[in-house]
């Protein structure tokens, strides 16, 4: 079981420490996107990285369209990895769609998780009545069209490409060759499962405390979504970052690491009584709100 899941999900383990941090990549990439973050935790934690089936260096033969047609299938991957390594008390770190995948996994087996750290999460990307997700259905169709055209023949997303990059010698050639390369059909289904998902009803069921890292000017997960999450996720803390964009772990790794460490440190020390703060505070950068 352990070996087969490890191979299937390309599980990589490093670091040392009694507790485990499990890093789950977002839509479009693979575990390599964590390479600016994990070194900061290797000294104190056991780090587990993996690729979802169909992404990165996972075993593509294990891909079944029915299983991965919804985020539940991806949550199953997370739980499979936890079961195979017999993980408990896990700090789950998920980027983007992996935040909701983490929510689904934690709702199924809450005993395995101690904290959820979410980077740029959104429970629902499509606007729905009063709820502002930031997108209309046709925008998602536009994404699928853009993906399709980019997967049509431009090799870099499809096949390994040898890239020369003298300015970034720290990047292994192996990484550059495979990063983001993907199977178009799998990515299309992953895109649909991600951007047409609605996990709002799953939020109140969460029993694991969580940190929401919300970027400034994130068009994929706008601030109002972060606020919505904080209001509906029991035990959540919202931190609005100075970082802009949707990939703070790649564009602003130092701030990302710092906020994660602050949260974990606070979680490790006995918590003072939680205070409900004025939500207006959220609109200023790098502020904290606890629920």
């Amino acid at each position: 079981m352990r070996d087969s899941i490890s191979a299937r999900n390309n599980v990589q383990i490093c670091g040392q420490g009694a507790r485990t941090m499990l890093f789950a990549h977002g839509f479009g990439c693979d575990q390599n996107m964590w390479r600016y973050i994990t070194p900061a935790f290797e000294k104190d934690y056991r780090i587990v990285l993996f690729d979802y089936v169909g992404c990165g260096k996972s075993d593509v033969n294990a891909y079944h369209a029915s299983r991965y047609g919804s985020l539940e299938g991806y949550a199953r991957d997370v739980l499979d990895v936890c079961e195979a390594l017999d993980l408990t008390d896990v700090i789950f770190v998920g980027h983007s769609v992996s935040s909701m995948i983490g929510v689904l996994a934690a709702n199924q087996q809450p005993q395995r998780f101690s904290h959820l750290i979410m980077l740029g999460p959104s429970p629902c990307y499509v606007n729905d009545g009063d709820y502002i997700g930031g997108f209309e259905r046709e925008d998602i169709m536009g994404l699928l069209d853009t993906m399709e055209r980019n997967f049509l023949g431009w090799a870099q997303f499809l096949a390994p490409v040898a890239m020369k990059n003298s300015e970034r010698p720290e990047l292994a050639q192996e990484l550059e060759e495979s990063f983001c390369s993907t199977d178009p059909d799998i990515m299309r289904r992953f895109a649909e499962a991600t951007f047409l998902a609605d996990n709002r009803a799953d939020l109140p069921k969460v029993r694991v405390p969580s940190l929401i890292l919300q970027c400034t000017e994130d068009t994929i997960a706008p601030l109002c979504v972060g606020v919505y999450l904080q209001q509906h996720l029991p035990g959540s803390t919202l931190r609005v970052m100075n970082a802009t964009g949707h990939c703070p772990h790649m564009s602003h790794p130092i701030e990302t690491v710092q906020l994660m460490k602050e949260y974990l440190l606070a979680a490790a020390t006995p918590a003072p009584p939680r205070v409900q703060q004025d939500l207006a505070a959220v609109t200023t950068a790098a502020s904290t709100v606890s629920a």
């Binding site: 994404l143 980019n150 990059n165 951007f195």
Partner: peptide
């Protein structure tokens, strides 16, 4: 476009960040 923005943030930006080059 909005669809293009998602593509930029999920594919293009990470690729550029990691590879330093896209074509």
């Amino acid at each position: 476009s909005k669809g293009g923005r998602i593509f930029y943030h999920t594919h293009l930006f990470p690729l550029l960040q990691m590879r330093g080059e896209v074509e």
